[in-house]
Structure formats: C-alpha cells, structure tokens
Design a protein around this nucleic acid. Sequence first.
DNA 1: TTGTAAGCGTTATCAA
DNA 2: TTGATAACGCTTACAA
Lengths: 332, 332
Amino acid sequence: MANISDVVRLSGVSKSTVSRVINNYPHISKEKKERVLKAMEELGYTPNLSARRLRGQFTTTIGVIVPRIVNPFFSNLVDAIEKVSYQNGYQTIICQSNLDKEKELTFLNLLKTKQADGIIMTAIENDWLAVEPFTEYGPIVLCNEYVSDANANVSMIRLDQFKGAYMGVKHLIERGHRKIAYCTGGSFTDIDKDNDRNLGYRKALEEAGIEINPNWIILNQHTIQDGKKVMKYLLELKDRPTAVFTGSDEVAGGILSAAKQYGFSIPGDLAIVGFDDQPAAELLDPGLTTIRQPVDQMGKKAVEVLVGHLNNAGMATATYELPIELVIREST
Amino acid sequence: MANISDVVRLSGVSKSTVSRVINNYPHISKEKKERVLKAMEELGYTPNLSARRLRGQFTTTIGVIVPRIVNPFFSNLVDAIEKVSYQNGYQTIICQSNLDKEKELTFLNLLKTKQADGIIMTAIENDWLAVEPFTEYGPIVLCNEYVSDANANVSMIRLDQFKGAYMGVKHLIERGHRKIAYCTGGSFTDIDKDNDRNLGYRKALEEAGIEINPNWIILNQHTIQDGKKVMKYLLELKDRPTAVFTGSDEVAGGILSAAKQYGFSIPGDLAIVGFDDQPAAELLDPGLTTIRQPVDQMGKKAVEVLVGHLNNAGMATATYELPIELVIREST
DNA sequence: TTGTAAGCGTTATCAA
DNA sequence: TTGATAACGCTTACAA
C-alpha cells in the first residue's frame, strides 16, 4: 500500500509539501502541486486515516449511537444523519448500543481515542453524569433524546414529546373515548426518560376529568411481538379500554394485527394511536393514526449543530425543538 | 487522556511490559502485572486504537457495507452481523453506500488504510474486478450478494435466489395464474445482478408454457412509493396481469396498499408475492405471501467465515448456500 | 514557497 | 521475564 514516502519519491518533493497538497494548503507552486497530484494518482495513494488521527486534530468522522438499528425510526434517523454528514465531508460510524450501558460507554471511547471528532447520541442509557466526562474529548449532541438536568451543558435536538402524547390522547378523548390505555417503552415513573410523554398522557386525562387506571398502563413494550402480547393481555381484562395510545408504531402494529385476529373491529371496538409515523404506518389496514416525528429534519439539524461545535469550539450549547404532528388515519 | 507513558510512570515498569499486559502476553510476573493493571484502572486508561492500528496488525474492527440501511432487510442483517461480531470481540463499522459506486470504493479503503481487518459486503455496486484488488489488504466476504465470475476468489454467503423466485412464481401458477407481472430492483438483463431471480421467473413461466409479456416486467423498483406507482401503472394497462411477483416486501406493500385503494380485492383481483419476509409482512392485510430470507443465519455465518479468514490467512474461500423458503399468507 | 525534523501512542525486535 | 529502541504514516513548528 502506497504511503506518503512513496509519493515523495515519485514526485521528488518533500514530505511536508505532499502533506500540504493533501490538506489543500494555499501557498504551493502550481508545478509542484501538479507533480504531487500526479504521483498520488499513479500510486493509487490514500492517506492513512489512523496516522492522521494519531497525529492530527481531526478525524473527519462522527459517531452515531443508536439503541436498535432494526427499529425503523432509528434506521431512518441514521439514514438522514449519514447523508448530511457525507455532504459535509464526514464519515459516519454507526454504533448499536442494544440498550446496553457498558457498550454505550465503549462507544463513547471513540472520542477519547480520537476515532471520531464528535458523537451524536440518539438515545442515552447511562445517566448523563456518566456521559458528561466524555465531552472533554469532543462535542456530543443529543438527538431525539435529552436530559432534563438543567446544568447539562449539551446541545440537544428534541421534540416536544409532552405535546406529542398530549395531542394523541386528546384526539382519542375528542373521539369520545374515556377508557384509554397507555403502552410505553419506559416505566412510567417520574425519573423515567419517557417522562414527558407520561406527563402528556396524564395532562390530557386530567383535563377531561378522567382518572388513570393502573391496569391500563403497560410498560417496557418495544416490538411487534410485544404489541401482540399486549392485545392478549387486554383481551383478558374484565374492564377493557376502548382505546390505546402507544409509544411506537411497531407496538401499535402488533396490537392492531392481533386485535383483528381476535375479531375486533378497529376503531369500533378498539381505537389505536401509534408514535413515529414509520413508513409502514400507512400500509396497515386500517391506516394507523400516529404522531409524526420529523426524522429527516432532526438528523439534519443534529449534524449541523455538531459540525458547528466542531468548527467553533466556543459555540454555546443550545436546545432546538422541532415540531411534532398528529397524523390522523383510520385507526381512530 | 491517559496514554501508555502515564501508565509507565505510575506503575514503574517499562513501556514494553505495559504493552505486554495490554495484549495478554503469557510470561509476566504476577507482581508487575498487577501493578500495571492497577495503574491502568486508576488512570482510566484505554489504548489508543489509532496508534494500534497504525503500528499493529489488527484493528479488531470489521466493516459492513450496506446499500440502504432503511431497508428493513438490511437493517436486520446489520443487526445480526453486529451482534455476532461483538460476541467475537470485534467492533463493527457500518457503511451506507447508497447505491453509489464511488462511495463503495471509499469504504473499501478502510481495508487499505488499516481501519478494518476485514469487510462484509451485503451488496456490490462496482464490478467485482474493481473490488478484487482490495482483497490484497484483507479478506472480503460477500453476504447476500455474490458474483458469478467463476474465478472470483471470495467467500460468499448466498441464498438460492433462483429457487426463491422460481418458488414464488410457481406458487402463483399453481394458484391458477397465467398473467404474472414481475417487479424487480434490477434491470432484467443477463448481466444484471438480479439475474438469478430473473432466471427463476423465466424458468417457472417456461415450464408452464407461458410467454413473457414485456409490459409486465417492471424495473428498478425499491420503495413503498415505487410500489404505489407500479400499481398505478398496472391500472392503466389494457391487458392487466392477475398476479405480481415482487423483488421486495416494501414494493409489494406499496402495491398492496394502492390496490386496495383502487378497490381491488386481494388476492381475488390481484395476487401479490413479496420477497424478504420483513417484520411488517405479516402485519399487512391480507398478510403478504413472501420469500423468507434467513437474515439472522446469514449474518452469523458471514461473521464466522470472516473471522475464520482473519484467524487463518490461508483458509480457502468457499461458498455457503442457505435455505430459502416460501411463506404463504393471504395475499395469494 | 519549501524542506528538516520531532512527535502522536502503540507494538516488535533485539539484547540482556 | 524485562527493557531500550526503532518503526508505523502522518502533520506541524521552525528554519531557510
């Protein structure tokens, strides 16, 4: 594999000049520059990134941490991030944490070990206090995820999850429902990270003078399979809800599918609201009413903010809130 | 950020000894080993991967090239690969080629520049001849994709795509269809990479004495949106097919959704077969008949084979064929 | 505008 | 079993 010395030999200029050509320095004589470029071409030379990383300031690489890439919400987010990064001249390295705290920390080491200039976290498994120390080594941007610690000094791209849940539940209430189940990926406690959605659910019910029925709060649901089990659970309830508000389209899809199997009419016997507006949401029958998260915008903004921090170390952190939207289809 | 010299200072042993501890060399005195470990612990030391890569043989990293991560088939494949790699002590770096030849070559440079020990390609945009030279720098394994060049010296994990298409089309014929459209991601030429599927389609028709109608061959379709357009196109045809065999569940889903909108009954007015058996396939209504590709197995096998090549440079390349299966649901 | 030389954090070779 | 030292490929003072 050709290295910089080979280019030096072939072009007959010094190492520094070659390096300057590689890095597009302004003051090089045309003649030498061309000789170098020609030599690089001829040798099929590519700078060794490990060496650059070891020596230099920049890796032109950003890391993206996702919990589960198979979740379409995240694969779409990653897609958006990857495209914009590429346009900005950054390589993306995608890391799947699988909801594993340890693994998340391992990935954060990319920063410490200068494999990435900055990191976008689309979820955060550890406490912010455990993540914070890594910011010493490079900027971290939170995208889709956020921490409520007022002292946290990070840029965040967030959605108004409170409003999302509130809109969804309120929509069900307006459709006449008063028995509304809530199916979340989190644990419905105050410290929980889905807290904002929980509050939205609570608020909407409260406003309508409806009390929460603990039997209708279903925790830690993530997949299509989970959704099917939820439906089974609902079926066995004596007092059944007439509607269910869900933390993800995947779970909603599972519920919808199982409900039809049990002979439920939707939304007649059970109204369903999802979350995310994943591509499949409109393919379901009936089409799934859901909360649209502007994934592409979020990804784009996250990269822009991260690149901003990278180009200007002093840039103040900020929180950006993107609009969230209720998409009404036939499942409600 | 602590480096090896800091550990040297704190532990009072030489750099080489520290390095030996890091790399688990056998002959070190217990006492020194412990001192080193303690120092590393205390300093929160992590070896700098760039330096290791620059100096050493191994990066304990493998690259995975996918065309589009948003395609659930690929995100599931990546998921499987990532998990097995992690178990084997390898970091995975996921690269999205976006069907771009240039970008693919850029990613292949990971090998040249020692950022990855080996690469798994789940699709291949360039000719094998353009990719081949990279194998000089490390093993490449083809997973899901393959090249028919008999001289190609690569390990491949492949599915019998011919059989997959053949089974799907034959199934339609057995259901009484004779007007069967074919919707592919490729271009239906002999040199095309979807060639095997094309042949399967051809063969099944041929056996039943059915001639191919060129109007029913629809090329370059990939997304849900594409599927919807396909349905619109079919609608405008004077002589319409009664069934359509499709190269992906996404496209099939789009067709199915649009068909229902136009008032078609499925499978009565139009039978549909997908490809992949993506999670959403069973959620559609009617459930989508499709060709199941054993994604998890494929990913696992790919990693195993790659690790094999890595541990044993002399290992002969081989082709592994995994079973493919027809999943019959209600859309046919 | 160009070149020389030091150094980034490791591992491998050699000698002790 | 341990340590000194060179080398990996690059960037960047500094000097010219």
